[in-house]
Design a protein around this nucleic acid. Structure first.
Length: 423
RNA sequence: GUGGUCGUAGCUCAGCUGGUAGAGCACUCGGUUGUGGUCCGAGAUGUCGCGGGUUCGAGCCCCGUCGAUCACCCCA
């Protein structure tokens, strides 16, 4: 029979790599939680119009990368290609913006874009994102950036940089885009590039062809058009980032792929990832809430790519930290009934326990103990059960200690706690 | 969506100018009494991605297809 395979271009995680994935995801989430962001768990599909209006009709995401289908009721549905539009919809729908501001939420899950896959670019991929809605304050911009930066540091990443820019307010953009368009219309470009420019002239700053780069290096720069208010905000953001010790580089040619960004925009770029080097990015969006039928509230947020962050950790040779695996592995001799019972008692105390099943020989079961990565192992045979004493073996050193079964849970808990203090 | 490279045991790969498959690691069992990681021995494992074609004969050649990968495009 022909074997099935996963659909083209999806990322999926199975042991042992899945534990690394889970470590990255939970570290990112924890960084948001400690800053007061609360979970929103949202659908992975939404009304197509939400993304068309929210993300922007001119974006590639909306024009050619969405998974769109008609449901049985004839509605046009789209698998979410990004997180912010759905969050705005939920905030408006549940009136979260009627209470205290800012609304601070995080999300985590799968997103979908029908692109040609390559390393770090998948058709189903995973992000953790946060949004802070309702307060336009450079300090929140910096907090949002700090949530990402802190997570990256905790994950041990080194070889990356933070790029920031300001896209200015609507007046800034209006003036700037007019000048940029007239500059572009004055230079000669091929048909396809001209078409891209007419959709969003900013995109040309991303072009990798030398001749286009050369042309764009002489183009007007948005930074020069910032209104005094935008310029002051941007200066404040930089000042505060420095104050809390976050390094950054200003990239005044940064291009963001989604149309809703205004003001502060940022991107984390990793150096070891090839073409798909962005591990996270975000920015402020002034008009989005109103655009989607809500109040005129500004917001800021980011999306971090779990897949790419995992690749970045692997590229930097970072291993999983100790202490995430099993605490104890039980090797039963004879019937394993007692081992099963004890494992449940220990698990009830929060100790991570696995055991050998299926009447494995001692040697084989000890090998399993070794491979399980458990910190400790005990053999549980007739002797131990009748005497009530087991020999607790630390797998790494091979040292054994006699412990009574009744004291085993406390002994393990104490040792695990000590380990946490030492590391 | 466009172009390049690639696809052989669970994993990493070898397989010369076409003659019906191999290594290392991993896995299972064993090296006589209840303790893994080293060592030694034995063993199982592949429709050579899939489909067609050329040939007396194809893992090696040709076409298609699926997938991966790299770049473009775009982005997390």
């Amino acid at each position: 029979m022909a074997k099935f395979q996963a659909p083209k271009g999806v990322s999926e995680y199975v042991p042992d790599r899945s534990s690394h994935f889970d470590y990255v995801r939970s570290t990112l989430i924890e960084s948001a939680v400690v800053a007061g962001y609360q979970l929103v768990e949202l659908p992975v599909f939404e009304d197509t119009e939400l993304f068309a209006r929210g993300v922007g009709e001119s974006t590639d995401v909306v024009r050619k990368e969405m998974y769109t289908f008609e449901d049985r009721g004839g509605r046009s549905i789209t698998l979410r290609p990004e997180g912010t539009a759905g969050v705005m919809r939920a905030v408006i729908e549940h009136n979260l913006d009627r209470g205290q501001l800012p609304v601070k939420v995080y999300y985590s899950g799968a997103f979908f874009r029908a692109e040609r896959p390559q390393a770090g670019r998948y058709r189903q991929f995973y992000q953790v994102g946060i949004e802070a809605i309702g307060v336009a304050d450079p300090r929140i911009d910096v907090e949002v950036i700090a949530v990402a930066e802190r997570a990256f540091r905790q994950l041990g990443l080194q070889n990356y940089r933070l790029e920031i820019t300001s896209l200015g307010d609507s007046l800034t953009r209006e003036n700037y885009l007019a000048d940029l368009r007239s500059y572009i219309s004055g230079v000669s470009l091929d048909e396809e590039t001209t078409a891209r420019a007419s959709l969003n002239p900013l995109r040309l700053f991303d072009d990798k062809r030398p001749e286009v780069k050369d042309l764009m290096s002489k183009a007007p720069v948005l930074m020069d058009y910032l209104t005094p208010e935008s310029a002051a905000d941007f200066a404040k953001v930089q000042e505060l980032l420095s104050m809390i010790g976050i390094d950054f580089v200003v990239n005044n040619r940064m291009v963001r792929g989604l149309d809703y960004y205004t003001g502060t925009a940022f991107e984390f770029v990793h150096n070891d990832l090839g073409a798909q080097s962005g591990i996270g990015g975000g920015g402020r969006y002034d008009g989005l809430m109103a655009q989607l039928g809500g109040q005129e509230l500004s917001g800021i947020g980011f999306g971090l790519g779990i897949d790419r962050i995992l690749l970045a950790r692997e590229a930097e040779g970072l291993a999983l930290p100790d202490g995430l695996g099993l605490d104890l592995y039980i090797v039963p001799l004879g019937t394993g009934d007692e081992a099963l019972k004890i494992s449940e008692e220990l698990r009830l105390r929060g100790i991570r326990v696995d055991l050998a099943f299926g009447d494995k020989a001692l040697k084989g079961a000890m090998k399993s103990a070794d491979k399980s990565g458990a910190r400790y192992a005990i053999v549980l045979g007739a002797d131990e059960i009748s005497s009530g004493v087991v020999s607790l073996k630390e797998m790494k050193s091979g040292e054994t200690t006699s412990v009574t079964l009744s004291a085993l849970a406390n002994e393990l808990i104490e040792r695990i706690a000590n380990l946490g203090e030492n590391s």
